[in-house]
Each structure stands twice: as structure tokens, then as C-alpha cells.
Amino acid sequence: MNHALIQFFVAVVFGTMIFSHLTKKNFGASMAYGVQSLAVAALLFGSFLETQNKLILIVVICALIVKVVMAPLFFSRLIRKHALMFSASTYLNTPLTLIAIAILTFIAHSQKFAAVTGIVPANQALLSLALAAMFLSLFLIVNRKGALSHIIGILSLENSIVVFTIFAGLEQSPALQLGILFNIFIWLMIAQVFISMLYKHFGSLNITSMQSLKG
């Protein structure tokens, strides 16, 4: 696959992460996740073109079905069902969020992390971006109060890890990737039921309303 195209897809993954932080609407965040997953599927398709391993093609198709189609559909359904048009508030306001994003991106690109991002020296810039995307996914979970954002944060973290492993040469066997996709699929099913139950019980998906869960 063309190197510029690869860089573009990684940039899409990173860009959608930032978009998820800034968007005020849950629908926007879920669509951003769909686009991010599409970019990851495209990178996996690139692996298929290089290796001609048919199992990877199956992984790409499954990823498209589960992550690009089903997950956004699942989020849309939740948004419609529970009227979650706007995302829950954040702990940090937008300028502070941007500063935190900048710091985390800086840390991921710092020399201190060269031992991690320099596993494959040719891909160091891409690996740094993937590592930054990992940190930003975690930060999304930390900063947002809405349970939906948490789910998107966790799924984005998985996408970031996949991107990192592709460029670090740590890509696992297609069978394992299929297993992970199956895991995500089941996880989405369970989360749908679980979130509906939470909403029914608390009347909100704002996690600050769930303090009464504390023992």
C-alpha cells in the first residue's frame, strides 16, 4: 500500500480521536468511531494486499461488519432510545482538554518513549501517533461523564492498539484477530443490555448519577 495512504489512514485514526474529544454530540462521536474503524479496516486490507493471506481478508470483512456497521448502528439505537442527543459534560473545558491532548501527544512523541516507538525505526512517526491515540482513548474515558463516551473510548483504545501492532510488526495471527472481533461483538450485545438496565435504574447514563453504586 502507498506510504502516503498509510499515513493518511493513521492520521484519520488520530484525527477522529481528537474529534471525539471535541464533539458535543454523541452521534458525532459514534460516527467518528465508525470512520476510525474504517481506517483501521483499510490498514488491515493493506496487510492483506501485502501478504495475500485470505484469512486477513475475512478479518477485514468482519471488522467492517462489526466495527464500521454494527457498532455505530448500536450507538445510534441507544441515542434514539434514550434521547442521548448531546454528549454528557466533561470534567475539563475545551481549552484545557486541548492542552491535555497536546501534552499526551507530546509525551507519546518524546525521546523517552523512543524505545517503544522505535521498535521499527521506519515507522517511528506512525507508532508515535498510534501511541498518542492510545493515551487519548484513555483520556476520553477519564474526561467524559457519559457512559456512551466510555464505551467509545474503550473501543477506540482497541483500534489504537491494532494500529500500533500493525506498524510495530507485532500483528497477531488472523485467528486471534477474529477472536478479538467476536469478543467485541459479544461485548456490544452485553453492553446494550447493560446500558438499558442502567438507564432504567438511574434514569441517566451520566456516570456521576451512578454514585449510589458505591458500597
Binding site: V116, F135, L138, V142
Partner: peptide, 23 residues
């Protein structure tokens, strides 16, 4: 605290500190 965000922030901070320490 019972707040999931705080717990995840512990994980994030611990991850970064651990990485900075071992690398």
C-alpha cells in the same frame, strides 16, 4: 471514590509513569 473516571485516570497516570520509569 466510586467514580469510574478517577479509576481510569489512575490507570492512565500509572501507565505513563511505569513506561517513563522502565524505558
Amino acid at each position: 471514590s466510586g467514580n469510574v473516571n478517577i479509576y481510569i485516570s489512575y490507570i492512565l497516570v500509572a501507565l505513563i509513569i511505569t513506561l517513563l520509569f522502565i524505558l
